[in-house]
Design a binder for these strands. Structure first.
Lengths: 183, 183
DNA sequence: TAGGTTACCTAACAGCGTTAGGTGAAGGTG
DNA sequence: CACCTTCACCTAACGCTGTTAGGTAACCTA
Protein backbone atom coordinates (compact mmCIF):
# COMPACT_ATOMS: atom_id res chain seq x y z
CA UNK A 1 0.00 0.00 0.00
CA UNK A 2 1.69 3.11 -1.21
CA UNK A 3 1.06 5.90 1.27
CA UNK A 4 -0.13 9.21 -0.06
CA UNK A 5 2.76 11.53 -0.75
CA UNK A 6 3.31 14.25 1.82
CA UNK A 7 1.64 17.57 1.14
CA UNK A 8 0.43 20.58 3.12
CA UNK A 9 -3.14 19.37 2.70
CA UNK A 10 -2.36 15.88 3.96
CA UNK A 11 -0.48 17.27 6.93
CA UNK A 12 -3.37 19.54 7.82
CA UNK A 13 -5.78 16.66 7.47
CA UNK A 14 -3.68 14.52 9.76
CA UNK A 15 -3.38 17.32 12.29
CA UNK A 16 -7.16 17.62 12.42
CA UNK A 17 -7.46 13.89 12.87
CA UNK A 18 -5.05 13.91 15.80
CA UNK A 19 -6.91 16.86 17.27
CA UNK A 20 -10.12 14.83 17.13
CA UNK A 21 -8.73 11.75 18.82
CA UNK A 22 -5.93 12.95 21.04
CA UNK A 23 -6.87 16.53 21.75
CA UNK A 24 -4.74 19.62 21.50
CA UNK A 25 -2.15 18.34 23.93
CA UNK A 26 -1.39 15.37 21.68
CA UNK A 27 -0.85 17.46 18.60
CA UNK A 28 2.91 17.54 18.09
CA UNK A 29 4.91 17.71 14.90
CA UNK A 30 6.40 14.37 15.82
CA UNK A 31 2.94 12.86 16.29
CA UNK A 32 1.81 14.11 12.90
CA UNK A 33 4.96 12.74 11.29
CA UNK A 34 4.61 9.38 12.98
CA UNK A 35 1.08 8.98 11.68
CA UNK A 36 2.40 9.63 8.20
CA UNK A 37 5.31 7.20 8.58
CA UNK A 38 7.76 10.01 8.28
CA UNK A 39 10.22 11.88 10.48
CA UNK A 40 9.24 15.18 12.05
CA UNK A 41 11.83 17.21 10.19
CA UNK A 42 10.32 16.19 6.88
CA UNK A 43 7.18 18.13 7.63
CA UNK A 44 9.15 21.33 7.48
CA UNK A 45 9.67 20.86 3.80
CA UNK A 46 5.93 21.34 3.31
CA UNK A 47 4.97 23.58 6.22
CA UNK A 48 6.81 26.64 7.49
CA UNK A 49 6.30 25.80 11.15
CA UNK A 50 3.69 24.63 13.59
CA UNK A 51 2.18 28.04 13.98
CA UNK A 52 1.59 28.34 10.25
CA UNK A 53 0.01 24.90 10.30
CA UNK A 54 -2.42 25.91 13.03
CA UNK A 55 -3.20 29.11 11.18
CA UNK A 56 -4.00 27.10 8.09
CA UNK A 57 -6.21 24.91 10.22
CA UNK A 58 -8.15 27.90 11.51
CA UNK A 59 -8.51 29.29 8.00
CA UNK A 60 -9.69 25.91 6.81
CA UNK A 61 -12.44 25.80 9.41
CA UNK A 62 -13.39 29.43 8.73
CA UNK A 63 -13.58 28.77 5.04
CA UNK A 64 -15.77 25.73 5.47
CA UNK A 65 -18.01 27.80 7.67
CA UNK A 66 -19.42 29.83 4.85
CA UNK A 67 -19.47 26.86 2.54
CA UNK A 68 -22.68 26.56 0.60
CA UNK A 69 -24.74 28.68 2.95
CA UNK A 70 -27.66 30.48 1.38
CA UNK A 71 -26.46 34.06 1.73
CA UNK A 72 -29.75 35.42 0.54
CA UNK A 73 -31.66 33.97 3.46
CA UNK A 74 -33.14 36.32 6.06
CA UNK A 75 -30.48 37.47 8.50
CA UNK A 76 -31.77 35.58 11.48
CA UNK A 77 -31.91 32.32 9.58
CA UNK A 78 -28.52 32.98 8.04
CA UNK A 79 -26.81 33.75 11.32
CA UNK A 80 -28.47 30.85 13.07
CA UNK A 81 -27.32 28.48 10.38
CA UNK A 82 -23.76 29.63 10.64
CA UNK A 83 -23.79 29.51 14.41
CA UNK A 84 -25.10 25.96 14.35
CA UNK A 85 -22.57 25.03 11.71
CA UNK A 86 -19.66 26.44 13.65
CA UNK A 87 -20.84 24.60 16.71
CA UNK A 88 -21.03 21.41 14.68
CA UNK A 89 -17.53 21.79 13.34
CA UNK A 90 -16.09 22.48 16.77
CA UNK A 91 -17.98 19.51 18.15
CA UNK A 92 -16.53 17.09 15.67
CA UNK A 93 -13.05 18.59 16.18
CA UNK A 94 -13.06 19.29 19.91
CA UNK A 95 -9.37 19.98 20.11
CA UNK A 96 -9.66 22.57 17.39
CA UNK A 97 -11.93 24.77 19.47
CA UNK A 98 -9.09 26.16 21.52
CA UNK A 99 -7.03 26.83 18.41
CA UNK A 100 -9.87 28.49 16.55
CA UNK A 101 -10.81 30.64 19.51
CA UNK A 102 -7.25 31.67 20.24
CA UNK A 103 -5.98 32.44 16.77
CA UNK A 104 -7.52 35.03 14.54
CA UNK A 105 -8.49 34.12 11.03
CA UNK A 106 -5.84 35.34 8.64
CA UNK A 107 -6.62 38.69 7.01
CA UNK A 108 -7.04 37.27 3.51
CA UNK A 109 -9.62 34.72 4.54
CA UNK A 110 -11.36 37.24 6.75
CA UNK A 111 -11.57 39.64 3.83
CA UNK A 112 -12.90 36.93 1.60
CA UNK A 113 -15.64 36.06 4.05
CA UNK A 114 -16.43 39.72 4.63
CA UNK A 115 -16.82 40.28 0.91
CA UNK A 116 -19.26 37.44 0.52
CA UNK A 117 -21.20 37.72 3.76
CA UNK A 118 -21.16 41.47 4.32
CA UNK A 119 -23.42 42.84 1.57
CA UNK A 120 -26.32 40.36 1.80
CA UNK A 121 -26.30 40.39 5.59
CA UNK A 122 -26.20 44.17 5.68
CA UNK A 123 -29.08 44.34 3.25
CA UNK A 124 -31.18 41.92 5.25
CA UNK A 125 -30.34 43.75 8.46
CA UNK A 126 -30.91 47.10 6.86
CA UNK A 127 -27.65 48.47 8.23
CA UNK A 128 -24.05 49.09 7.14
CA UNK A 129 -21.82 46.20 6.14
CA UNK A 130 -19.41 47.18 8.90
CA UNK A 131 -22.04 46.82 11.53
CA UNK A 132 -23.42 43.64 10.01
CA UNK A 133 -19.99 42.01 9.95
CA UNK A 134 -19.23 43.12 13.47
CA UNK A 135 -22.43 41.53 14.67
CA UNK A 136 -21.67 38.33 12.80
CA UNK A 137 -18.17 38.22 14.22
CA UNK A 138 -19.51 38.78 17.71
CA UNK A 139 -21.80 35.82 17.28
CA UNK A 140 -18.91 33.64 16.15
CA UNK A 141 -16.86 34.69 19.12
CA UNK A 142 -19.76 33.81 21.36
CA UNK A 143 -20.24 30.39 19.79
CA UNK A 144 -16.54 29.64 19.89
CA UNK A 145 -16.45 30.67 23.52
CA UNK A 146 -19.35 28.40 24.36
CA UNK A 147 -17.61 25.52 22.63
CA UNK A 148 -14.50 26.32 24.60
CA UNK A 149 -16.43 26.18 27.83
CA UNK A 150 -17.91 22.83 26.85
CA UNK A 151 -14.66 21.10 25.96
CA UNK A 152 -11.91 23.61 26.54
CA UNK A 153 -9.26 21.07 27.34
CA UNK A 154 -9.65 17.69 25.76
CA UNK A 155 -9.47 14.91 26.59
CA UNK A 156 -11.75 16.01 29.39
CA UNK A 157 -15.29 14.87 29.80
CA UNK A 158 -17.72 17.77 30.04
CA UNK A 159 -18.78 18.69 33.54
CA UNK A 160 -22.42 18.86 32.52
CA UNK A 161 -24.58 16.69 30.27
CA UNK A 162 -24.82 17.61 26.65
CA UNK A 163 -28.39 18.79 27.03
CA UNK A 164 -27.16 21.51 29.34
CA UNK A 165 -24.80 22.87 26.71
CA UNK A 166 -27.47 22.60 24.06
CA UNK A 167 -29.79 24.69 26.18
CA UNK A 168 -27.01 27.15 26.91
CA UNK A 169 -26.24 27.48 23.24
CA UNK A 170 -29.88 28.10 22.39
CA UNK A 171 -30.26 30.65 25.13
CA UNK A 172 -27.06 32.54 24.39
CA UNK A 173 -27.44 32.63 20.63
CA UNK A 174 -31.14 33.36 20.86
CA UNK A 175 -30.55 36.19 23.27
CA UNK A 176 -27.90 37.73 21.07
CA UNK A 177 -30.08 37.50 17.99
CA UNK A 178 -32.97 39.02 19.92
CA UNK A 179 -30.65 41.87 20.75
CA UNK A 180 -30.01 42.55 17.09
CA UNK A 181 -33.71 42.93 16.47
CA UNK A 182 -36.25 41.96 19.11
CA UNK A 183 -38.91 39.49 17.97
CA UNK B 1 17.23 42.73 50.76
CA UNK B 2 15.74 39.51 51.94
CA UNK B 3 13.47 38.16 49.19
CA UNK B 4 9.97 37.19 50.15
CA UNK B 5 9.76 33.52 51.02
CA UNK B 6 8.27 31.31 48.35
CA UNK B 7 4.56 30.68 48.61
CA UNK B 8 1.70 29.70 46.30
CA UNK B 9 0.47 33.28 46.36
CA UNK B 10 3.86 34.71 45.44
CA UNK B 11 4.26 32.21 42.63
CA UNK B 12 0.84 33.06 41.25
CA UNK B 13 1.65 36.75 41.50
CA UNK B 14 4.89 36.25 39.63
CA UNK B 15 3.17 34.18 36.96
CA UNK B 16 0.69 36.98 36.36
CA UNK B 17 3.54 39.46 36.12
CA UNK B 18 5.32 37.38 33.52
CA UNK B 19 2.06 36.96 31.64
CA UNK B 20 1.74 40.74 31.52
CA UNK B 21 5.21 41.42 30.20
CA UNK B 22 6.20 38.34 28.26
CA UNK B 23 2.89 36.88 27.23
CA UNK B 24 1.69 33.33 27.53
CA UNK B 25 4.56 31.92 25.52
CA UNK B 26 7.07 33.27 28.03
CA UNK B 27 5.38 31.72 31.02
CA UNK B 28 7.50 28.74 31.97
CA UNK B 29 8.15 27.25 35.35
CA UNK B 30 11.81 28.06 34.87
CA UNK B 31 10.98 31.68 34.07
CA UNK B 32 8.89 31.99 37.21
CA UNK B 33 11.63 30.42 39.27
CA UNK B 34 14.32 32.65 37.79
CA UNK B 35 12.35 35.76 38.68
CA UNK B 36 12.18 34.51 42.25
CA UNK B 37 15.89 33.63 42.39
CA UNK B 38 15.08 30.02 42.78
CA UNK B 39 15.36 26.82 40.77
CA UNK B 40 12.36 25.48 38.87
CA UNK B 41 12.07 22.30 40.89
CA UNK B 42 11.56 24.30 44.06
CA UNK B 43 8.24 25.58 42.80
CA UNK B 44 6.88 22.07 42.98
CA UNK B 45 7.08 22.16 46.71
CA UNK B 46 4.41 24.85 46.73
CA UNK B 47 2.44 24.08 43.58
CA UNK B 48 1.26 20.70 42.34
CA UNK B 49 2.09 21.41 38.70
CA UNK B 50 1.76 24.05 36.05
CA UNK B 51 -1.81 23.17 35.27
CA UNK B 52 -2.86 23.67 38.87
CA UNK B 53 -1.06 26.99 38.84
CA UNK B 54 -2.98 28.15 35.78
CA UNK B 55 -6.21 26.93 37.33
CA UNK B 56 -5.47 28.97 40.42
CA UNK B 57 -4.80 31.94 38.18
CA UNK B 58 -8.16 31.59 36.49
CA UNK B 59 -9.91 31.24 39.82
CA UNK B 60 -8.05 34.28 41.07
CA UNK B 61 -9.28 36.37 38.18
CA UNK B 62 -12.80 35.00 38.51
CA UNK B 63 -12.85 35.76 42.19
CA UNK B 64 -11.66 39.32 41.69
CA UNK B 65 -14.35 39.73 39.12
CA UNK B 66 -17.15 39.80 41.62
CA UNK B 67 -15.07 41.72 44.11
CA UNK B 68 -16.95 44.60 45.65
CA UNK B 69 -19.57 44.83 42.92
CA UNK B 70 -22.92 46.18 44.06
CA UNK B 71 -25.02 43.08 43.63
CA UNK B 72 -28.22 44.95 44.36
CA UNK B 73 -27.83 47.18 41.32
CA UNK B 74 -30.27 46.78 38.42
CA UNK B 75 -29.33 43.84 36.27
CA UNK B 76 -28.21 45.84 33.27
CA UNK B 77 -25.94 48.01 35.32
CA UNK B 78 -24.63 45.00 37.21
CA UNK B 79 -23.86 42.96 34.13
CA UNK B 80 -22.32 45.93 32.35
CA UNK B 81 -20.07 46.61 35.30
CA UNK B 82 -18.88 43.05 35.39
CA UNK B 83 -18.32 42.93 31.65
CA UNK B 84 -16.27 46.10 31.77
CA UNK B 85 -14.37 44.80 34.74
CA UNK B 86 -13.55 41.51 33.07
CA UNK B 87 -12.40 43.38 30.02
CA UNK B 88 -10.21 45.57 32.17
CA UNK B 89 -8.61 42.62 33.92
CA UNK B 90 -7.89 40.85 30.64
CA UNK B 91 -6.48 44.06 29.23
CA UNK B 92 -4.00 44.49 32.00
CA UNK B 93 -3.09 40.81 31.81
CA UNK B 94 -3.20 40.16 28.08
CA UNK B 95 -1.52 36.81 28.29
CA UNK B 96 -4.09 35.66 30.80
CA UNK B 97 -6.93 36.02 28.33
CA UNK B 98 -6.12 32.79 26.56
CA UNK B 99 -5.80 30.94 29.84
CA UNK B 100 -9.03 32.31 31.25
CA UNK B 101 -10.95 31.59 28.07
CA UNK B 102 -9.56 28.09 27.70
CA UNK B 103 -9.85 26.81 31.24
CA UNK B 104 -13.09 26.61 33.11
CA UNK B 105 -13.37 28.13 36.52
CA UNK B 106 -13.07 25.43 39.14
CA UNK B 107 -16.39 24.15 40.45
CA UNK B 108 -15.93 25.53 43.96
CA UNK B 109 -15.30 29.07 42.77
CA UNK B 110 -18.08 28.80 40.23
CA UNK B 111 -20.48 27.71 42.96
CA UNK B 112 -19.34 30.53 45.19
CA UNK B 113 -19.98 33.09 42.48
CA UNK B 114 -23.30 31.51 41.60
CA UNK B 115 -24.42 31.68 45.21
CA UNK B 116 -23.62 35.37 45.48
CA UNK B 117 -24.63 36.55 42.03
CA UNK B 118 -27.53 34.27 41.24
CA UNK B 119 -30.27 35.39 43.61
CA UNK B 120 -29.98 39.18 43.21
CA UNK B 121 -29.54 38.92 39.46
CA UNK B 122 -32.50 36.57 39.15
CA UNK B 123 -34.60 38.93 41.20
CA UNK B 124 -33.70 41.92 39.13
CA UNK B 125 -34.28 39.99 35.94
CA UNK B 126 -37.48 38.52 37.27
CA UNK B 127 -36.48 35.00 36.21
CA UNK B 128 -34.97 31.84 37.66
CA UNK B 129 -31.48 31.85 39.09
CA UNK B 130 -30.51 29.17 36.59
CA UNK B 131 -31.47 31.34 33.67
CA UNK B 132 -29.92 34.42 35.22
CA UNK B 133 -26.60 32.68 35.78
CA UNK B 134 -26.62 31.19 32.31
CA UNK B 135 -27.10 34.62 30.84
CA UNK B 136 -24.31 36.06 32.96
CA UNK B 137 -22.00 33.24 31.98
CA UNK B 138 -22.82 33.77 28.33
CA UNK B 139 -21.85 37.39 28.66
CA UNK B 140 -18.55 36.45 30.25
CA UNK B 141 -17.82 34.01 27.48
CA UNK B 142 -18.58 36.73 24.97
CA UNK B 143 -16.31 39.26 26.67
CA UNK B 144 -13.52 36.74 27.06
CA UNK B 145 -13.85 35.84 23.41
CA UNK B 146 -13.65 39.46 22.37
CA UNK B 147 -10.53 39.91 24.46
CA UNK B 148 -9.09 36.81 22.85
CA UNK B 149 -9.74 38.26 19.41
CA UNK B 150 -8.06 41.49 20.41
CA UNK B 151 -4.87 40.00 21.80
CA UNK B 152 -5.18 36.28 21.39
CA UNK B 153 -1.50 35.63 21.03
CA UNK B 154 0.79 38.03 22.76
CA UNK B 155 3.18 39.52 22.15
CA UNK B 156 1.29 40.51 19.04
CA UNK B 157 0.19 44.01 18.25
CA UNK B 158 -3.53 44.21 17.54
CA UNK B 159 -4.49 44.30 13.90
CA UNK B 160 -6.89 47.16 14.47
CA UNK B 161 -6.70 50.30 16.60
CA UNK B 162 -8.00 50.16 20.11
CA UNK B 163 -10.99 52.28 19.23
CA UNK B 164 -12.18 49.53 16.93
CA UNK B 165 -12.18 46.99 19.71
CA UNK B 166 -13.85 49.44 22.06
CA UNK B 167 -16.63 49.92 19.56
CA UNK B 168 -16.86 46.18 19.02
CA UNK B 169 -17.11 45.59 22.74
CA UNK B 170 -19.86 48.16 23.10
CA UNK B 171 -21.81 46.77 20.18
CA UNK B 172 -21.49 43.12 21.19
CA UNK B 173 -22.24 43.61 24.87
CA UNK B 174 -24.98 46.12 24.15
CA UNK B 175 -26.60 43.79 21.67
CA UNK B 176 -26.52 40.90 24.07
CA UNK B 177 -28.00 42.95 26.88
CA UNK B 178 -30.68 44.23 24.55
CA UNK B 179 -31.48 40.63 23.82
CA UNK B 180 -32.10 39.93 27.47
CA UNK B 181 -34.65 42.69 27.64
CA UNK B 182 -35.04 45.16 24.79
CA UNK B 183 -34.78 48.83 25.76
C1' DT C 1 21.73 17.08 71.98
C1' DA C 2 18.99 14.04 68.73
C1' DG C 3 15.38 13.67 65.42
C1' DG C 4 12.35 15.28 62.25
C1' DT C 5 10.36 18.50 59.31
C1' DT C 6 10.83 22.39 56.07
C1' DA C 7 12.41 24.39 52.01
C1' DC C 8 15.35 24.47 49.00
C1' DC C 9 19.06 22.21 45.82
C1' DT C 10 21.36 19.26 41.80
C1' DA C 11 20.71 16.07 38.26
C1' DA C 12 18.28 13.89 35.16
C1' DC C 13 14.37 12.22 32.02
C1' DA C 14 11.45 12.36 28.09
C1' DG C 15 9.40 15.19 25.04
C1' DC C 16 8.92 19.53 22.40
C1' DG C 17 9.76 22.79 17.93
C1' DT C 18 13.20 23.68 14.87
C1' DT C 19 17.51 23.83 12.00
C1' DA C 20 21.71 22.20 9.42
C1' DG C 21 23.48 19.30 6.51
C1' DG C 22 23.47 14.70 4.17
C1' DT C 23 21.47 11.23 0.70
C1' DG C 24 19.18 8.61 -2.70
C1' DA C 25 15.92 8.86 -6.44
C1' DA C 26 13.83 11.32 -10.38
C1' DG C 27 14.17 13.91 -14.35
C1' DG C 28 15.89 17.02 -17.68
C1' DT C 29 20.07 18.12 -20.75
C1' DG C 30 24.55 17.59 -23.30
C1' DC D 1 24.64 7.13 -21.85
C1' DA D 2 26.65 10.42 -18.49
C1' DC D 3 26.03 14.49 -15.91
C1' DC D 4 23.73 17.72 -13.02
C1' DT D 5 20.10 19.65 -10.61
C1' DT D 6 16.15 19.49 -7.88
C1' DC D 7 13.12 17.19 -4.99
C1' DA D 8 11.71 14.86 -0.82
C1' DC D 9 13.12 12.79 2.60
C1' DC D 10 16.70 11.47 6.26
C1' DT D 11 19.95 11.74 10.70
C1' DA D 12 21.65 14.43 14.27
C1' DA D 13 21.60 17.93 17.12
C1' DC D 14 20.29 22.37 19.63
C1' DG D 15 17.93 24.59 23.37
C1' DC D 16 13.82 24.58 25.44
C1' DT D 17 9.86 22.54 28.24
C1' DG D 18 7.36 20.17 32.55
C1' DT D 19 8.38 17.05 36.00
C1' DT D 20 10.52 13.68 39.33
C1' DA D 21 14.03 11.55 42.50
C1' DG D 22 17.04 12.08 45.83
C1' DG D 23 20.31 15.04 48.54
C1' DT D 24 21.26 18.71 52.06
C1' DA D 25 21.46 22.45 54.93
C1' DA D 26 18.64 25.12 58.41
C1' DC D 27 15.31 25.22 61.73
C1' DC D 28 11.93 23.55 65.50
C1' DT D 29 10.76 20.37 69.09
C1' DA D 30 11.50 16.99 72.68
Amino acid sequence: MAPRPLSPALILETALDILDHEGGAGLSMRAIAARLDVKAASLYYHVRNKDALLQALVDHVAHELLGDADLTAPWRELLTTMAVRLRGVLRTHPGAAAVVATKNVSPEVAQQIADRLGPPLAASLNTTTDRALLLAQSLFVLVAGLALAEFGDVPHEPVAPRAFYDAWFDLAVGTFLDGIDPP
